[in-house]
Every structure is written in structure tokens, then in C-alpha cells.
Design a binder for these strands. Sequence first.
DNA 1: TCAAGCCAGATTGTCGACAATGTATCTATA
DNA 2: TATAGATACATTGTCGACAATCTGGCTTGA
Lengths: 228, 228
Amino acid sequence: MSNLISIKSATLSEDLAQQLTNAIVQGHIPQGSKISEPELAKQYGVSRGPLREAIVKLEGLGLVTRTANVGARVIQLNTQDMLDSFAMREALEGMAARLAATRMQTEEVNNLYALLDKHQAYLDDNQDERYLQQGGNDDFHLRIIHASGNAKLIRLLTEELYAVIHMYRRHTADQRSDPRQALREHRAILDAIANHEGDLAELLMRRHISRASHLLQQAMEQIALISR
Amino acid sequence: MSNLISIKSATLSEDLAQQLTNAIVQGHIPQGSKISEPELAKQYGVSRGPLREAIVKLEGLGLVTRTANVGARVIQLNTQDMLDSFAMREALEGMAARLAATRMQTEEVNNLYALLDKHQAYLDDNQDERYLQQGGNDDFHLRIIHASGNAKLIRLLTEELYAVIHMYRRHTADQRSDPRQALREHRAILDAIANHEGDLAELLMRRHISRASHLLQQAMEQIALISR
DNA sequence: TCAAGCCAGATTGTCGACAATGTATCTATA
DNA sequence: TATAGATACATTGTCGACAATCTGGCTTGA
């Protein structure tokens, strides 16, 4: 039973890492559950070799923890880890905003203003809806991160941190801040970038993420209370 | 010919990852060189299985790059990557200093003052020598990082970024700032932490790292000129 | 009854071999 | 001579099997 959907990159190991990442982030493999190599290998129709390589990659991404001679487990989200992740995000995306402010060209700035206008229009059309479930290129934060031009920072934020962040979002049913408020903050950040005010852009980005962190914290504590 | 020194952790794969990391950071495996699986496997007296897992780990640490069906290569340091790493360090260690300022207990603060006194004494005894080749627990920066209490930040900085940073240090023959100046800056950072002034501690740490980054940049450009 | 030790089953770690892919050399032709 | 194609070699990717270790249940003795 080959569940390997045909993303088909060069090697099985890469495909598996991709598939497993998705499965974990989207909750198909539940948090804290054990990763059984024989089981998964049969499920995906591959041998344990490439599967193990994929698991090692996931460990590097922080999605599973491995213990020698025992095996791998999907990480178990908790409030402390979430706060830790957001503290790092605050520092790194703040830096990204600063760098973007010095490097971003006029054309790219205008593209981003257009993106925010699109978000605005979406909000006007869908009252009370949550702020656009942002995928890929439509995510304001991702655009800023890429605009930083710092390859290592881009990799870390987009490949490593964001996987975990998305798990939290899903877990807390995306109880995010007032979407209009978030959009206003995005616009203020972009204004600072457009004016090449690195200090201000960093400050605003950090405040923006810090606010989101507090909201998520409240949401998680709510969940902890309910599920008691 | 088993070159596997008896660090002997639980699995061969872990040992290999450790050995290879050291070999790369210390330059025993030169930058940009190809990693031959059969050759290394014979050299360490293991099969290719655990060796490949170790290589995948190194890729996650950013020490090698892999291409499907071609193999792995040790990264090639260049000025841009170095600057990128230091920008991340600036953001993350700045955050670490901030967190340390809010969390560090009086006892640990005193321990750190004692450490800086030790560094001072070392400088007084060894005029003109460079600032203590800091290993492990005697490194001021590592102590601050650990004091942050942020597990993810600690892992990233100590396991991932510092490997690369140490490669740069070795590569540039450790042309670092005036050691007495560095020590003064460390003391100022610690003062801010002792007073629980998070903002100031972060500011000073960022300035400190930024200064080191500029110096390293000059050193690397010097090297680039010489080796032309 | 309970704790310690043992035993069987299952899982992970490691190995050697085969398949697939890339690389370099050699030949033939324009 | 230079370029394109074919071929042989080496390296990487994948597999199935065996060894080492862990887990849970059972027995045994106090």
C-alpha cells in the first residue's frame, strides 16, 4: 500500500521527509505518538533505510525526538515551548524586518502594499472571518523574511520554526488577534520599511509578534483548562 | 583501521556525527571537499548505513550540503555567509541577554563576575596574548545563552551556529578584537543583567557582537586579498 | 502479596549486496 | 581538431537480513 503521493523528488528519503513533515504539522500523526519504523515503512511501501534518514531529518527540524534503541516520538506541544519559539521568532523576524528596511527595492515595497490591499479587500468581503489562512507567497511575514536577503535566517525561519508555529496555530484553532488589528500592524511595519527605518521596522515587528505570542498563550491556557 | 575514538555514545551514528563535526570544524576535512561515503566508511571502520545518517545530521547542522545522486560536500566559508551568521547571532544572543537579565539569580550572576575576574587575571598574566581560547564552560557567551532558559534558543546557538562560528575563528586565525576591550564589554553586559535591565543588556550584547562581526569581516577581506 | 529476575517477542541499530545514477574516458564522425 | 555519443567505472540510493537492545509478562522466592 504505497501512500507515497507523487511529489517524487529525487530520492525516497526526501519525499518521505516532506510527507512526514506534512503529516505531523497537519496532525495526521498525533502529537506525542510513537513513530514505528516497520509500520511506517510498510505504510509507505519503502524499506527502513530511507525512512530512517527521513526521521533523522525530522529530528533536525525539531518535529520528533529520538532516543537510542527506543525510537522516535512526535513532539508534544506545550505552552513553554511555544513561548520559546515565539521569543526566537521575535528576535529573528525583528532582524529580518530591519534588514528588509535597508535592502528592499521600491518595486518589491509596492508589491507588498498591493498584497496588503488584497488582504484588506478580503477582510471587507468576509466580515468577521479570520485573517486569510495565509499560504505560501501571500503571507506577509514570509515576504518580509525573504526580503531580508539573509539565506541562513530564511532557512531557519521558513523550514524549521514555521513548521512548529503552524502546529500551534492548528492546535489552538487559530485563535488569533483581531485580523484588522493585525493588518494595521502589518501596514505600519511596511511603512517603516518603505522609509528605510530599520530601527522602527524591527521594533514594530517585534511588538507585533509579541502581541501574537500573548494571545496564543491565552488560547493555550484556555485549552489546558478545558481539556482538564 | 578504526579511527573511531572511544567517545562511544549509544550509537555509531551519533559517534560519527560528533567525530565528523569536530573534523570539519577543526579543518581536518578541508572546506569544500567532497565527502566520499566508501572512503569514510572504511576509514572509520563502519558500514555506510550509520555514516549516511551522520551525514544527514551534518546537513541539518549546515556543515555540509548534499545533492541527490552526487553526494555531500563540506561547506565553503565565504564572507557573506559569515555576515549572515553574525546577524543571526546578534539577534539571538541579544534576546538571550534580555532573557538572562530577567531570569538570572544572584548566585549565577556572582559566578559570572568571578569568571570575568578570572579572565581579567589571565589577561594580566599574559600580556598581548589573545583573549583565552574559550572552551566550554569558561565562555562568557555560552553562559549567557544557557542563562536565557530558552531551550530552543540554546540548542540552535550552541549546536548549530557555534559550529560555523568556530570555523570562521579558526579560518581567520582568531583575529579578534582587543581582548581587554572585549572583556570590558562583557562586564558592561553582565552589569546590565545584574541590574535586571533587559533592554540595556540586549543593546550591549548586540553592539558587542556587531563589533566582532565588523572585525571578522575586515580579517576575512584581508585573507581574500592575500590569497589572491 | 509483592518484588526481583528471567524469558519471549518486538523494535531499533548495523551490515553487506544490488540497483540506479553520475562521471570520466575513449571512439567515431564532421 | 573538436564535438557528440557510447561505454566502463565509481558513487550514491535502496533493500532485506542479522545483531543488539528494549519492553512486557511470567515465574519464583521471600
